[in-house]
Design a protein around this nucleic acid. Structure first.
Lengths: 349, 349
DNA sequence: AGAATTACTGGAAGCGTTTACAAGCACGTA
DNA sequence: TACGTGCTTGTAAACGCTTCCAGTAATTCT
């Protein structure tokens, strides 16, 4: 760190390097490295001296240099299909908070639907030795992608669906859907409609399909007939939930007495639609969703809780175990919990 | 890249280095670097040969090595106060998409309210020479923080509020609020309530305060009295908008005929509250919000559009100008647009 | 045709760390 | 007293690039 005249002219602050700290503390750079990184033994007095010198010089290790020399970046790549949805934003928030606490950076990779874009993310970014590990949120990795990560020795943790060969935090989607349906059945409903996902939403982990399967299983186990006319697909949004519910409830005969929507947003849309049709809630119609969305409480929506923020935190914990060389956490299901509010009740007599 | 026996035993794939590419292409590593980075002249034939070799070896430059040698990281730090809000998630999505298109990484720094955490972000992360530049979304930087970035020669672009000395994309909050209010005034309303922000939400750029000022200015300019009882604070959420509206509308005398809410979510909450109170919308009550939230259309909410996704994209464009050494874009106001839907109409006779 | 550019290429010096290795030292042990 | 054992420290070799410099070949100009 020799400040040239030019540097001074430009008023450019020269950042201190490990060498400066070493000089200031009167030790070798190797010792500074050991002292600051906590790898290797350093006497208490030296440690204190190095710390003081580093602090006085506002020294921070150069991430590039450290990364180049050690192969560790302290940076985790997070793969998400999108950001602007309550679920993803919440998971991301949890991940980012937990990683920051642990001193890791969070680098965001939004995988659009375009395949070549996705390939680019892998080849140009992830494999560019930019990250130490990867968290994939609701992204189903292909065999080649998994292999590439494995070959590069990059730990991987999944959230939202089982990734073969990697610890994953996942829901038993079928069980969750079945539980929601069973709640309605237990209340005495027999004509139960289901608003699920549409073609386009049936992506990576076939979540809509699996939720529908759970719904149908619960119906069959209760000896109720599954009526295809009581199924409608939507895109998980409130607006399409509203539309779908109008469709379901508008028919004068054989109107369902309950709706199980595959997301809280669709469920709320359904409640609004029912209200607009003049139905009394929950007397004329029970509605249950999935998520425990932040709006669920306000609408009195019965739902099944998943705590995405928490999921993000847990995923980080799992990942850190692997990074630190501990017994890698096994994948395990996320706990789910039925939250009964005022939107579900017994069917009208 | 000499594969040792141990490496082979571990089945660890040795990633190709620039040296391997140079050998395969029959040129020097300097030429490979020039060919692949586009800096410096390389003949067409050499370029092709290098590209082929790189592709065959699955070569990607090491970010650490490149960063160490050049001082450029191709990584942009994004500062946000939170992620899980429609606005922030949308801006983030825009930023991330634009950066990826340009070949940059997006590293996310969520600044919590805790001050020392915030300091840590600056000292340990941003200044750790991890990023080439910074985008601050609705984060007001202190003088010291600005100086630090400037000293390190890290370009900075702000979104959401003017940052002295840095190009910023900002709203004229007062003008926006005045426009919303004027819309109601033009329709003939005189008793116009405002649901704004509370103490806690009045953070970095004092957005609630400025919106309130715009509301009051418009009222005064129309010679309408500003009635403090017609102002209520909330936290920008639908739930608190609901509560606030109940409060405003529940009083039997002198009920307002219109509500201007400082966010669409609060506006929607207000509409729901009005409905629950048995009011006919929009006949008995006009409601206007700000945002053009994704739900606004469904609720027929009149609002003022801000396009956060677009803002993110624009911020990236501004930043890239600076990075590339072009005339840095000046800060400029975000365009706003009144979108009239069915939630506003003339007051009851 | 010779001179002056210009285009292309290779050698080599960093960039700022980490870490294997060796050396020095203080101790306790036989 | 001589010798291993740990702890602490320094030396120096990577890590994989970028880029300055110099040299050669190709091109343009006078």
């Amino acid at each position: 760190m020799v400040a040239t005249a030019l540097d001074i002219l430009r008023e450019r602050v020269i950042v201190a390097s490990i060498k400066d700290v070493a000089e200031a503390a009167g030790v070798s750079i190797a010792t500074v490295s050991r002292a600051l990184s906590g790898r290797g033994n350093v006497s208490a007095t030296t440690l204190a001296a190095v710390r003081r010198a580093a602090h006085e010089l506002d020294y921070v290790v150069s991430a590039s240099a450290s990364g180049l020399a050690s192969g560790r970046t302290r940076n985790i790549g997070v793969l998400v299909p999108m950001i602007n949805r309550w679920y993803y934003a919440s998971v991301l928030e949890g991940i980012s908070a937990a990683l920051m606490r642990e001193g890791y950076d969070t680098t965001l990779y939004q995988l659009s639907k375009e395949v070549d874009q996705r390939e680019k993310v892998f080849s140009d970014f992830l494999l560019r030795q930019r990250v130490d590990a990867v968290i994939a949120v609701n992204v189903e990795l292909g065999e080649a992608e998994m292999k590439a990560l494995h070959a590069l020795d990059k730990p991987l943790v999944g959230v939202g669906g089982p990734l073969p060969g990697a610890p994953t935090l996942f829901w038993d989607e079928e069980a969750v859907a079945a539980l929601a349906t069973e709640h309605l059945i237990a209340l005495g409903h027999t004509r139960i409609a289901h608003i699920g996902g549409s073609q386009e939403t049936d992506q990576d982990f076939h979540l809509p399909t699996r939720r529908r399967a759970g719904y149908e299983r619960a119906m069959r186990e209760a000896s109720l007939t599954v009526d295809d006319r009581l199924y409608l697909g939507a895109d998980f949004s409130m607006a399409q939930g509203y539309q779908a519910a109008k469709q379901l409830l508008g028919h004068p005969v054989n109107r369902p007495t309950a709706i199980f929507a595959a997301s809280d947003e669709m469920a709320i849309g359904a409640m609004l639609a029912a209200r607009d049709l003049g139905l009394q809630l929950p007397h004329d119609l029970s509605v249950i969703g999935i998520d425990n969305h932040e709006l669920a409480d306000m609408f009195g929506l019965t739902t099944i809780e998943q705590r995405p923020h928490q999921q993000g935190e847990t995923a980080v914990a799992m990942l850190l175990r692997t990074i630190r060389g501990l017994e890698p956490a096994a994948g395990h299901p996320i706990e789910h919990r039925l939250i009964v509010r005022s939107s579900t009740t017994r069917p009208p007599a």
